[in-house]
Write a protein that binds this DNA or RNA. Sequence first.
DNA 1: GCCAACGTTGGC
DNA 2: GCCAACGTTGGC
Length: 155
Amino acid sequence: MAYWLMKAEPDDVSIDDLAAMPGQTVGWYGVRNYQARNFMRDQMRQGDQVLYYHSGCAVPGVAGIAEVCSGPYPDPTQFDPAHHYYDPKSTPAQPRWQQVDVRLVRKTRFLSLADMRAAPALDGMLVLARGNRLSITPVEPSHWRAVMALLGEPA
DNA sequence: GCCAACGTTGGC
DNA sequence: GCCAACGTTGGC
């Protein structure tokens, strides 16, 4: 069982939006970066634990805990010409972009990016690295435990 | 809205 | 295969 951090824009799917969805589950559509896609396609397993991170907003940070609840399958938005995430180079026969389903485990207290940067236990965490733009990053078990401690969640 | 950082594209 | 130009991300 592995740990991940996944960035969502709260204007799109916030932690509260996720909580309101059927089954509290969302398909992780819209990834258009090969490295992030490869994590979902090749490395994620059902049951992997996820830090649900709000980005592209006034106060970015971890908003909850989720888990991977499907294997990889084609992102449907890549085939829809009307969709923002349409990719004309992708076909249903040879889909380029994959997604997994992610289910809410629980909403937590909010741990801001600033608080994460201020926590020595999180030194070296990939999401904090300079210039990091990856929307999905693996999380070291020690960093996961440190985040749980900062959130006041049982490890 | 700005801009640093990074990924992708495409000419050569 | 190099690398300049361009587009995107994402914090501030």
